[in-house]
Design a protein around this nucleic acid. Structure first.
Lengths: 210, 210
DNA sequence: TAGATTGTTAATCGATTAACAATC
DNA sequence: TAGATTGTTAATCGATTAACAATC
């Protein structure tokens, strides 16, 4: 996995900065100092300045950061200034939830199609998004410039299909299957392992002093 | 937030150990060394030994780790040897997906009810799970020993309802709303911010050398 | 100019890895 | 017993925080 110079710790925090800056913009705030922001976000001002300086000098001494400018710059880093075409592979409840979540579109993530092996659901539409046969997936990816596949298949199918998706030209996989995909290093995999998340919650419930 | 002595980095890895050990058990493997496991999981053997030794000596010199024993011990740490009653608050597509995911039950996480403000859906059932009015939520939590609430409400409602849930006795919140909840320190919050996950994927797609 | 606040270097802290003595 | 492998201490690496000179 070809790592860029920026540490994953920093990258993980970027979307949260983006969210807070978006809220500041909505509330009409024009400028903000790392110190003010640090209080809102419950992190150190030092960390904010260090994080941002990984990407260049977004602020100005004596003034702070211009909210709208910083928001837009972080947006560019996160790629939300571009359009990303997505397919959802697996039309179970989770797949449907993703297809239904219109908010992603505001950030440029557009679900163009869904795929499933189950004959019964093929042909149905969800929020105008067609469920198609897996047989059509290669053609569809190529014709529609699909970049990202949300993978919501059961674990026993996920690994095999993921490899195919890569063959067909998918560049990133949003993996909801409870499995670690091993794919070529140029393929981006972002895991959402809900059951692991729930177990962490359970761990903390169990251990918490109270 | 009263932190236990174990670092969050270690805790985050526990469910993954648990998953691999479960697979080893299924495949009939009786014992495993930290070195073998490290190769399977793509981590260092040193890290595995350090992680496990946070909780006590689960292994044996010259032998390694007994798979079933270690699996069960980590299971206890993660609290999957106990039953956790859950409610889903917000019956949108994501809430329904959670209610429908029967696999959680195998780990002791049982969804006992769903709640919504929308009159149109109240009374409906999903996999035998009743959607009820928010007005009944306090009673239900108390009568059914509900420990965890999965919060799948829109962000503008989430903060207010979360506070109420805490008043009613909820101990852990599985938060799918795009907001940082600020709740008393004895309440466990586990965030699943899907839009942030998608942005990280997008960041990596954008930056990846390729 | 004086005050504020960044950008950036240095110090600290924590997490990971390496090494090896203990022991099964 | 000899070999294997843990448990654990020590060394390294990386991330966070503190400090302050640069500069708007």
């Amino acid at each position: 996995m070809a790592k860029s110079g920026i540490s994953t710790a920093v990258i993980k925090r970027l979307p949260r900065y983006y969210r807070y800056l978006g809220e500041l913009m909505e509330s009409g705030t024009e400028r903000i100092s790392s110190n003010e922001l640090s209080k809102m976000m419950n992190v150190t001002a030092s960390q904010i300045r260090q994080d941002l300086n990984n990407f260049g000098g977004f602020g100005q001494q004596g003034y702070g950061y211009n909210v709208e400018y910083l928001y837009n710059e972080i947006g560019k880093l996160l790629g939300v200034d571009r359009r990303h075409n997505i397919i959802v592979v697996g039309s179970g409840h989770l797949g449907q939830a993703i297809a239904n979540y219109a908010n992603f579109e505001r950030r440029g993530f557009v679900v163009k199609g869904m795929f499933d092996n189950n004959e019964d659901v093929i042909g149905r539409e969800i929020r105008g998004i067609r469920i198609m046969s897996m047989d059509d997936i290669e053609r569809f990816i190529k014709d529609n410039h699909i970049e990202i596949a949300a993978l919501t298949l059961p674990k026993h199918e996920a690994a095999r299909i993921a490899e195919k998706l890569v063959d067909y030209g998918i560049r990133g996989i949003w993996n909801f299957a409870h499995i670690d995909l091993s794919l070529p290093g140029n393929i981006v995999v972002e895991n959402v392992h809900l059951s692991e998340s729930l177990m962490r919650l359970s761990y903390n419930l169990t251990t918490r002093g109270k």
